[in-house]
């Protein structure tokens, strides 16, 4: 298949240069005033397409900020440290966490059963003296990015509901990102500072998701969830 493609390519090349050097064909192919018209037509098409490309509204553009290499390194460092910080109950001190959503539910019994219907989310439970008769649930996540673009906001929070004394956590919908990227040709990026920074690309990094639950100190916690104190 690729050989056929190559042959096709060679023939096209021969035709395009053959039309220029009259050695391949006896008479000059497409020369004279005919070619001037064809080339002028081509130029007009290119011009129109070029102008249109600036005018066509770009829908569904991934609106996001580009991170520099330094910011990415910093985020990587924060992402690495965060698990131990959260595990030791110092979530307020943790850097690089995004607070996504909070819920609070009234708790009648002294019992909380946590049921998580998915994976990939870490659930921590902290018993707090000052809390009385309610459960606070907070969803945090660390930075996610693909191709140096921050996509943390793309990940939605799970659905959470409390029925009786069971806290049910439903995983969020599957996130699917399809994108095309248009890179400027290399002479256009050669002279700009850090011009190649987006060409390297860091691939993808999916952040960690934390559900942090605080319950009154005398509550008995069962099910999915790691009690940190």
């Amino acid at each position: 298949m690729s050989i056929i493609f190559l042959l096709f390519f060679i023939i096209l090349l021969m035709v395009s240069f053959g039309s220029f050097s009259n050695r391949f064909f006896g008479a000059r192919f497409m020369s004279g005033s005919g070619i001037t018209k064809v080339f002028a037509g081509y130029l007009i098409i290119l011009l129109v397409a070029g102008i249109l490309s600036f005018m066509v509204p770009v829908e569904d553009t991934l609106e996001a900020e580009y991170l520099t290499d330094k910011e990415i390194e910093e985020n990587d460092r924060l992402n690495n440290d965060i698990y131990s910080v959260v595990e030791s109950g110092r979530i307020e001190e943790a850097e690089g966490l995004t607070k996504k959503e909070t819920w609070d539910f009234p708790l009648k019994d002294k019992l909380l059963d946590i049921k998580f219907m998915g994976q990939n989310v870490m659930i921590f439970v902290e018993k707090v003296e000052s809390l009385d008769g309610k459960v606070d649930v907070t969803h945090y996540s660390t930075y996610s990015y693909m191709d140096n673009i921050d996509i943390t906001d793309r990940f939605k929070s799970p659905e959470i509901e409390l029925s009786e004394s069971t806290l049910k956590i439903y995983p969020p919908d599957h996130v699917n990102i399809k994108h095309v990227k248009y890179k400027n040709a290399f002479p256009f990026t050669q002279f700009s500072e850090g011009g190649e920074q987006f060409n390297g690309g860091y691939g993808m990094m999916q952040g960690m998701e934390f559900i942090y639950i605080t319950v009154p100190a005398d509550t008995e916690v069962t099910g999915d969830g790691y009690v940190i104190n």
Partner: peptide, 13 residues
């Protein structure tokens, strides 16, 4: 499990 992505690059090179 919760995420999938797919990207294509284009350029004038």
């Amino acid at each position: 499990e919760t995420f999938s992505y797919d990207m294509n690059y284009y350029s004038g090179n």
